[in-house]
Simulated assay, not measured.
Amino acid sequence: MTAAFDFKKEYRDLYLPKTTPALIDVGPMTFLAAAGAGDPNEEEGAYAAALEALYALSFTIKMAKKGDWQPEGYFDYVVPPLEGLWWGGGFDEARAADKGALRWVSLIRQPDFVTPEVLAWAAERVAAKKPGADVGRVRLVRFAEGPCAQIMHRGPYDDEPATVVALEAFVAASGREDDIAEPTSDEALLDALDAHGGVPAVRLHHEIYLGDPRRTKPENLRTVVRHPVRRA
């Protein structure tokens, strides 16, 4: 039996960087995306609702292998990890002064065979099985991040500032600077992200979550921290 394609293993440079900073050029990828605002730790809040919809759609698409229809080009795969773009709330790429005022886009990478038609097919099935899932908020976007600096953070999310400081020092020493700009609205950001494989005009602090905080001890969590950069 052929093993399911695992994006983390096949693209180790994107998902498994070292704990020392490095430069990387990130090419185009397809994502399911949901934008919102508010404290990500709030139970039954907007963030939790976004994740419910993203995971429901992602696993419905993956499990098409067991149905009587599969998208053209379908192959079996492991659902990639949750990712997030963050800004607002006094967020300075290191910490948030007010988590309740944070803004975010949550993302889950999809195989390139996922099209708007595939998303519509999955949304219809999720709506039938989970009427409470807000699948209407999820968009399909395709963009490249372009030149970035990244590092693996190990430990609790609240300890990330020290890792970000190390990343920023590396960026400055490399003759580069952050290329981060806040969008004017959630919709403007989603429109910008749907860049058809190009680098969007708006680029943000990016995190990729390799551990489940519900099942992993805080000290064992791994988070990829990635910043878009440009020549200073």
Rank of each mutant, 00 (worst) to 15 (best):
W121G: 10
W121T: 13
A123I: 11
V126H: 09
A127T: 14
A128W: 02
A128C: 03
K130L: 14
K130V: 06
P131M: 04
A133S: 15
D134R: 14
D134G: 00
V138F: 10
V138A: 09
V138D: 10
R139E: 15
L140C: 11
R142M: 12
F143P: 00
E145T: 00
G146A: 08
I151T: 04
I151V: 15
M152A: 12
H153Y: 10
R154N: 01
G155W: 05
G155F: 05
Y157W: 06
Y157Q: 06
D159T: 15
E160C: 04
P161L: 07
A162F: 00
A162I: 00
T163Y: 01
V164M: 07
V165N: 00
A166L: 10
E168D: 12
A169K: 13
F170A: 03
F170Q: 04
D179G: 01
D179A: 15
E182I: 02
P183H: 07
P183W: 04
T184P: 04
S185Y: 07
D186F: 02
E187C: 01
A188M: 10
L189A: 03
L190F: 08
D194F: 02
A195T: 03
G198A: 14
V199H: 01
A201R: 12
V202C: 11
R203C: 02
H205F: 13
H206I: 05
H206L: 07
E207D: 07
E207A: 11
I208E: 05
L210Q: 12
L210K: 03
G211R: 09
D212E: 13
P213K: 05
R214N: 14
R214S: 13
K217Y: 02
K217Q: 14
V224I: 12
R226V: 05
H227L: 13
V229Q: 05
R230K: 15
R230I: 03
